[in-house]
Amino acid sequence: MDVKVVIFDWDGTLVDSVEHIADSLYQAATELGFPAREREAYRDIIGLGMVEALEKLYPGISRDEMSTIREGYGRYFFAKVTTPQNVFAGMAEVVTDLRAGGRSCSVATGKSRKGLEGALVSSGLGPHFEITRCADEARSKPDPTMLRDILSFYGVQPREAVMVGDTRYDLEMAQRIGMPSIGVEWGVHKKDVLGQYAPHAIVDSVRDLRTVLGL
């Protein structure tokens, strides 16, 4: 692809954290007496901001209840530190090679700024990204505000960038502003879901992602 900027989702795209997020949400909610949801329900909201995720899991939840779940989630989630070993095999090299080839890399994530800042350092990926955007400082996916902020930072048009993500929310976000996207199948959603948002490509291996990106 002839693009100047590659924008990555974090959880489920760069880092193998989907199951840990689902576990942490389940533990935080059920210990407060909220009903357990099917495992897929906890996975399906990954990529959304926490407010939007909890509203989807538990319609009608109050702000106070939401705050209590978020506190519990934080305790469970941050008990495990993201390390370089949690980065999907080959993805650190993808980002390194993109930068070496003169392309810029950034992150658009449903994580909080606090969560992302810690993960950028502990994963070792932080130095590769010139700008990152989180759900608690913009709007939750699939609203494209995060992408617009990143495009503005680089001074490029949507067609000059690509969004790489594992969820419907990543690809819909890109679709809303006419940005090409690449769906990856090693995270939350598979081809049948990702294909609904007209991605440039859907890949099931890092090797195929490298091919699509021209690495």
Score class of each variant (00 low, 15 high):
98 L>P: 05
47 G>E: 10
202 I>W: 08
162 V>R: 02
12 G>H: 06
65 E>S: 14
63 R>M: 10
189 H>S: 06
42 Y>H: 01
118 G>V: 00
88 F>L: 06
200 H>S: 09
148 R>L: 13
76 Y>T: 00
98 L>I: 03
74 G>P: 09
66 M>N: 02
90 G>K: 07
43 R>T: 07
50 M>H: 14
130 E>W: 06
18 V>H: 01
179 M>W: 09
95 V>S: 03
133 R>I: 07
208 D>A: 15
39 R>M: 08
164 V>F: 05
152 S>A: 10
63 R>H: 11
17 S>K: 01
121 V>G: 01
23 D>S: 12
18 V>Y: 02
176 R>V: 02
215 L>W: 12
174 A>H: 00
214 G>S: 11
142 P>N: 06
65 E>D: 13
85 Q>Y: 09
107 V>Y: 14
10 W>E: 01
5 V>G: 11
31 E>H: 12
159 R>G: 10
208 D>Y: 04
145 T>L: 14
97 D>G: 08
38 E>M: 06
135 A>P: 15
130 E>G: 15
54 L>V: 02
14 L>D: 09
126 G>F: 07
70 R>W: 02
105 C>S: 11
37 R>N: 08
141 K>C: 07
79 A>H: 14
44 D>Q: 13
69 I>H: 09
151 L>N: 03
182 I>G: 04
31 E>K: 13
189 H>P: 09
48 L>Q: 01
103 R>V: 13
81 V>H: 03
119 A>V: 00
127 P>K: 05
170 D>W: 13
146 M>E: 00
12 G>P: 09
9 D>A: 05
168 R>G: 08
5 V>A: 12
58 Y>N: 09
157 Q>P: 07
206 V>S: 05
130 E>F: 09
73 Y>G: 00
101 G>A: 15
215 L>P: 06
114 K>C: 02
183 G>T: 11
157 Q>V: 14
60 G>C: 07
8 F>R: 04
45 I>S: 02
79 A>Y: 13
69 I>F: 11
76 Y>S: 01
184 V>Y: 03
206 V>T: 03
142 P>T: 04
114 K>H: 13
165 G>S: 01
205 S>M: 04
85 Q>N: 13
213 L>N: 05
15 V>D: 08
57 L>F: 12
186 W>K: 01
64 D>K: 02
35 P>S: 03
131 I>P: 04
57 L>G: 06
181 S>R: 05
123 S>A: 08
73 Y>V: 00
162 V>Y: 10
99 R>Q: 09
103 R>A: 07
5 V>W: 08
31 E>D: 10
122 S>F: 04
26 Y>C: 10
186 W>N: 05
205 S>D: 11
49 G>K: 08
115 G>W: 11
